[in-house]
Amino acid sequence: MESRAKLCFFALTVRIQLQSYGAAVDAGDTLSLGTSLTGNQTIISKNGTFELGFFSPDGSNWYIGICEGNLVLLDAQGASVWSVNTINKASRALLLDSGNFIMLIDDNKSETVWQSFDNPVDTWLAGMVFGGQQKLCLLEKLIRSCSWAFFLTHGLFSFHVDPSGAKQFVLTWNNSVQYWDSGTWDGKIYSGVPEIADKRQLNISVESNSSGLFESYTLIPPFSALIRLVVTKFGQVRVYAFDGSKWSMFWTMPGDRCAVYGPCGDYGTCDSRNIQLCSCGEGFKPTDNSAWLSQEWESSGCVRKNPLRCDAISGNTDGFIDLGVTLPDDFASSYPVSTNKDCEEACLRNCSCTAFAFNPPSGPC
């Protein structure tokens, strides 16, 4: 089944089972009571679009299971560290053609106890209602998520509804710095990304209620390729289409990777015109050469080749290089000086100052 789109729902080595213990299943779309899923076995949605299976990115010994009709994550010793914790108990788990993994009561498909669409990690699929307090988060090397409590560290970037109440989606760094927004929803388009409406392949539905802003999207016939929106390790949100053989990106924001917050790490400079996106300024070098060679710039940044001397009083001082960067919107005056030279000297006299900016003609500094 070469055209199958393989999306990983659980970024762990997992074991899924429904108690009581019983025979293994493979290639079906359902887990029933008395069956289990282990090893390299998978379940596949009815039309063969999605496959749910196991993988081990780092060889860690983690398991996930469904015990007594409840979805549970167990550690290597069998202790529960997270669970769905539903009141109702499920008897079946089913992988749908939409990519949604659901838990059902008995044989009634309308009674869903739990579904993966309510618990996204880094991917937003067609048909998934997303918004409110939900976040899509970058998955890093050691599998980090901002939505599952048992992971102790967060991804660097996240995509979510603007917490200020504005009817828009935003990208944030470290859950604190907002560096991109979609623009507000006007009933037809988001003001900051009108090109999405021009794609003419998506039907976007937006609802705003007391719980927040929620959006879902579906494909407009005859367009039949699979669509997914993903938060990437580069801090962008990208939309991919699957044509039956490969995933192709057809939209990304922000379009300029240098518009992402801190793409090159400490003391790194960014230029999206270069194949080598990041570089270290004069007097600096990469903190980790191997990381930069693998384009993991933001993980390490740059360090000084020589330590600062910080001896302005003796007249033997350090100097500055003009980077020509734009001041941030929230830039405020730190020193009550009126000239660029005074601002420079104020920085030289402060041993914790590593750079200065002056906005002519009279500040701020």
Rank of each mutant, 00 (worst) to 15 (best):
A5W: 05
K6L: 13
F9C: 12
T13P: 00
R15Y: 12
G22R: 01
D29R: 04
T30H: 01
L37G: 01
T38L: 11
G39E: 08
I43V: 13
G48K: 00
T49L: 09
F55C: 03
D58M: 11
W62R: 10
C67S: 14
E68W: 09
G78R: 06
A79W: 10
W82R: 02
S83T: 08
T86H: 05
I87P: 03
R92L: 06
R92I: 08
A93F: 06
L95V: 10
L96H: 06
N100F: 14
K109Q: 15
V113Y: 10
F117I: 03
N119S: 08
N119R: 06
P120L: 10
D122H: 05
L125M: 15
F130P: 01
K135L: 09
L136C: 02
S147L: 07
F151A: 07
H154G: 01
G155E: 02
S158F: 00
F159G: 01
V161C: 02
V161S: 02
D162Q: 07
K167N: 07
K167E: 15
F169R: 00
F169L: 01
L171C: 11
N175C: 07
V177C: 11
Q178A: 12
S182E: 03
G192E: 07
E195S: 06
I196Q: 10
I196F: 05
Q201P: 01
L202V: 04
N203Y: 13
I204P: 01
V206L: 05
E207D: 14
L213M: 08
S216E: 12
L229Q: 12
V231R: 02
K233Y: 09
Q236D: 15
V237F: 09
Y240M: 10
F242N: 00
D243I: 07
G244A: 09
T252S: 07
V260I: 13
C264Q: 09
G268W: 08
S272R: 05
N274L: 14
Q276N: 10
S279H: 09
T287L: 04
D288C: 08
A291R: 12
L293R: 08
S294G: 06
V303P: 02
C310S: 14
A312G: 11
N316C: 14
T317M: 14
I321G: 01
D322G: 05
L327I: 14
P328M: 11
D329P: 01
D329L: 14
F331I: 07
V337T: 06
N340I: 15
L348Y: 00
L348H: 03
R349I: 09
R349S: 05
N350R: 06
N350C: 04
F356R: 02
A357M: 08
F358Q: 00
P364D: 13
C365R: 02
C365L: 04
